[in-house]
Design a binder for these strands. Structure first.
Length: 335
DNA sequence: AACAGAATAT
DNA sequence: GATATTCTGT
């Protein structure tokens, strides 16, 4: 039904990625604890990743900190208003790198990054991005840009997307009416129907826009095919690529994974509406218009009373048995 | 060359 | 099983 569309859509405007919340998203997230552990005071720019510790039985060693990435790591500096704080790179003590050993040299790029862990928050961002882009335009690079999560790579997204598509496919297959799509995480009620036991934990945690499931049906009439071409934006800002993701790594001996939830609302700004346009210029969509409006109303603490979304996420991650190190970067999301 | 997508590998 | 990496086609 069309209503559905409009409906979920509306919800979106409010619930989702309002540019304000999204853009500023240069999430360099390190859980406070972690930061402390690492003695990092500047979670704003790059995160340090520790890694490369695979040894069995080596003495307790503190994760060395990564030398700050060379050069300006803060390309994001909203011209207008921005809450970006200057980073003072101020490291208490910097130990030398245990590995590699080049002090002033670039750490070898040979180090592997820790596996990315797709937290529900991250995944949500992903879904939002995909939704906003429309399935058609949702390709890894674009999605990645829209998400603008620091440290996220195209590969990460591609891989996740691949899996996500499979998931959608499966859902379509089982569509029927039960479509327990909207079920939010916990206990998606009504699973009992034997519908989706397979409900992949992660995927099930974010609502899947209807079109995703059956674009065909949504198309009611074989005409409207495109949905929201909303194009990115800030993609421009993401210019630093470095071997180290902004993320945290667990270290310490036994529990390789870390997670934290630290919400910090950093409001940035959405590039000037007129500012950057993707070379494509696919800007003529009704949607954009909306987006535009939204953009206008940014900044001010116009706090709607919009309450209540009850979404529960579980923290706590699955564990990796082996001594794998896991990287968890999280978006600002807050749900 | 750059990227998307599927196929493998870890 | 979740991600990463490799391979292939565009």
């Amino acid at each position: 039904m069309r209503e559905d569309d409009s409906n979920w859509f509306s919800r979106w405007e409010e619930e989702l990625p309002s540019p304000e919340e999204l853009m500023p998203l240069s999430q360099t997230l390190i859980t406070p604890d972690l930061a402390m552990a690492f003695d990092i005071r500047n979670p704003n720019s790059n995160a340090a990743v520790a890694a490369a510790n695979n040894n069995a039985g080596s003495p307790p060693r503190c994760p060395a900190q990564q030398p700050p990435p060379p050069q300006s790591s803060n390309p994001l500096q909203p011209p207008s208003s921005g809450v970006a704080q200057p980073n003072s790179s101020d490291f208490g003590d910097s130990a030398d790198l245990g590995s590699g050993g080049g002090a002033g040299e670039e750490p070898a790029r040979t180090l592997k990054r820790p596996r990315l862990v797709w937290t529900p928050q991250l995944h949500k961002r992903f879904v939002d991005a995909v939704a906003h882009l429309g399935i058609k335009n949702a390709v890894p690079k674009t999605i990645m840009q829209l998400m603008s999560v620091d440290g996220l790579t195209r590969e990460n997204v591609a891989s996740h997307l691949q899996k996500y598509r499979l998931y959608l496919k499966r859902m379509q297959g089982l569509s029927g009416g039960g479509g327990g799509v909207g079920a939010g995480g916990a206990g998606a009620a009504g699973l009992g129907g034997g519908a989706d036991p397979a409900t992949d934990h992660l995927f099930a945690s974010s609502p899947v826009p209807p079109h995703f499931l059956h674009p065909a049906a949504a198309a009611g009439r074989p005409n409207s095919e495109h949905y929201l071409p909303y194009v990115p934006v800030s993609a421009l800002q993401q210019q630093h690529h470095h071997p180290h993701m902004a993320a945290a790594v667990a270290a310490a001996g036994g529990h390789p994974q870390i997670q934290g939830q630290y919400h910090h609302r950093q409001v940035g700004h959405f590039g000037s509406p007129t500012s950057v346009a993707p070379a494509n210029g696919q800007f003529d969509h009704p949607f954009l218009a909306r987006q535009g409006q939204v953009v206008h109303r940014l900044g001010p603490p116009v706090h709607n009373g919009v309450p209540g979304y009850v979404e529960d996420l579980e923290l706590g991650n699955a564990a990796s048995a082996g001594g794998r190190k896991v990287l968890t970067l999280f978006p600002t999301g807050e749900d």
